[in-house]
Design a protein around this nucleic acid. Structure first.
Lengths: 337, 337
DNA sequence: TTTTATGTTGACAGCGCTGGTACTTTTGAC
DNA sequence: GTCAAAAGTACCAGCGCTGTCAACATAAAA
């Protein structure tokens, strides 16, 4: 049977209330006494019972990460989770993970989840982060939350990175290599990521003085197969692009597959770049030029920010974390036409 | 403020205890009354407070998944998590995730974790699943646990799949294509997976009547770079292998990278196969022949088994789930020598 | 019919902790 | 030495639920 607060109090010769004060970081405990109590805590390997604490204190010390039902191998979600857990380390907070698929009764299911676990804060991942109804419900419930890459102003605390600028930068790299006919496979309609990346693509072309050719942009849905299809469409053109910027790495892999099937060499015959910096981008050959999305940092920062806002509620915060453009072997100057 | 059990009791005109019985599936409640109470629960959108439940009932309704600090993009862990969460769905149980790095005081940290959250059951992932000391400690604490692919007999409930047979099968495929000089890049020393996959490789050779050549087996550590290095070593031989079986997909990608750098065509000049069936195996070109490790099913089954064992403690169980050999384009008959 | 066994329900204490109130002791400033 | 503020104690209620056990209802057996 693990030690209880009462045992610690007896061991240190103080009242349980004082131990409780130490546990909760209440300042009005003299350093010397605090040290003695902390010693007793260690001596007895005391760890407060989370349930009792949560029940009595009306604080659960829980941060809930609400994400969509991840598709197979979503390293994005995994990385976010790792980041959130990292942020909790060293704090009294713990993370609860909960996948929610975006169904009609989402708000109701969230209500149930909140009633059950009473998280002190929530971290929302796209697409939930972009669900206005959901955010409104959370505002009603008055639970602090942060969002990752929300495109909604409604979200008070949001962390993300400048996808548009990142996309512009990577396309700018293609331009600087000499590419002028650059295809783009866009992301799924309705996703913020689609819009930002597409905007960045256009920004880069504009900056380079290259006319925007709508027919060089084909639809995708972030999945491998749509990358294959998109590449097929682009490469079947009378004048195919010399480079393709796919809105994520999986689709970029699709482009590489289509190139492989056609016997096109990358980057000699076609330059390819992706977005996200998923593990596959370095495993594939040639290595994929891409933008590394700092998932771990995002998760960590989102959790930290929302936890901070519990102590002192602040106004809206929009944090942007730095990204990295990874130049690898899938891009090169265009071959002779 | 969410509804409490007392509200439900009042709404249904019964005592709180009876509501509690319904919530906990105690059979001695008449069907009619049960239905009425269930209606009240729905009417009030009542969800029991997890903390109160856990405190009073001395059961947390929590399954803890203890995994190693995942390296970047460990889709293995992610898939397991998804499987465990899936198993919890529809049960009153929830999952807590906790990464533990394998340090000296691991057992102590686990103790602390257990004291804090009081999980009703644990699911252990390798390498923790193979940590005899840890299992012993859990036995002492008398907490039910299940392991995924533990090689230890000590583990009472273990789920896994027959890695040895799977490895033999995929190497057998290479043999049937006509390969005789088949290289192997082994996994990290000390991992069960290394041993089983290597054994399977040898089994397949033996069965085919091909003499085992120790020099065709090189060391790896499951990481991409070691796959590159392993391939380099194998391909530098006077008579290089016509096929390479890497102990996991990441290393197989490393082999493909080395082949790419040398201008070797896959599968024309070299057949490659991996193990695990990670997402990268289908994103890469050519598609990688591999064994799909049923992670999700493993996680799900591990959680289900251990939850079942809470109700009726049973003897040791060793469940094996089916795997799948995915034949893709990275393997073909050896080219003319 | 009464008795006994069994099934069904309720009253109440208490899980381990924190919040609050009321009170005592210590500390430091003057 | 006085006095106010700070630091600490003592005590109790109560968070929302479940376990225990007793009470009652019903059905089976005598």
């Amino acid at each position: 049977m693990p030690a209880r607060i009462e045992d610690v109090a007896a061991h240190a010769g103080v009242s349980t209330k004082t131990v409780s004060r130490v546990l909760n970081g209440v300042p009005s405990v003299r350093a010397k006494l605090r040290a003695r109590i902390e010693a007793s805590i260690r001596a007895l390997s005391y760890v407060p019972n989370a349930s009792a604490r949560s029940l009595a204190g009306n604080r659960s010390h829980l941060v809930a990460l609400l994400y969509d039902n991840p598709m197979a191998g979503s390293s994005y979600t995994m990385e976010l989770i790792v980041g959130v857990l990292q942020a909790c380390k060293g704090t009294p907070y713990n993370a609860v993970l909960h996948p929610f698929d975006a169904g009609e009764d989402l708000a109701a299911r969230i209500d149930g989840f909140v009633a059950q676990h009473r998280p002190d804060a929530l971290v929302l991942v796209p697409p939930h982060a972009n669900n206005a109804k959901l955010l409104q419900r959370l505002d009603e419930l008055d639970i602090p939350y942060s969002t990752i890459s929300s495109k909604l102003r409604q979200s008070r605390i949001d962390v993300g990175f400048d996808e548009r600028r990142a996309a512009a930068e990577i396309v700018g790299h293609l331009v600087s290599l000499g590419h002028r006919r650059i295809g783009h496979i866009a992301g799924l309609q309705g996703h913020g990521a689609r819009t930002w990346r597409l905007s960045g693509y256009r920004d880069a072309l504009r900056k380079a003085g290259v006319a925007y050719d709508e027919s060089l942009v084909v639809e995708g849905d972030f999945a491998f197969a749509s990358g294959v299809a998109g590449a097929r469409a682009l490469l079947d053109r009378r004048r195919p692009p010399t480079a393709i910027f796919a809105a994520n790495d999986d689709m970029a892999c699709g482009v590489m597959r289509e190139a492989y099937d056609r016997g096109l060499a990358i980057p000699a015959d076609l330059s390819v770049c992706g977005f996200d910096g998923t593990p596959v981008s370095q495993l594939i050959s040639p290595g994929l030029t891409t933008v590394h999305q700092p998932c771990r940092e995002l998760g960590c920062l989102a959790a930290e920010s929302v936890l901070r806002s519990i102590r002192d509620p602040a106004g809206p915060q929009q944090a942007r974390v730095p990204y990295q453009v990874l130049l690898r072997a899938s891009t090169a100057a265009p071959g002779k036409p």
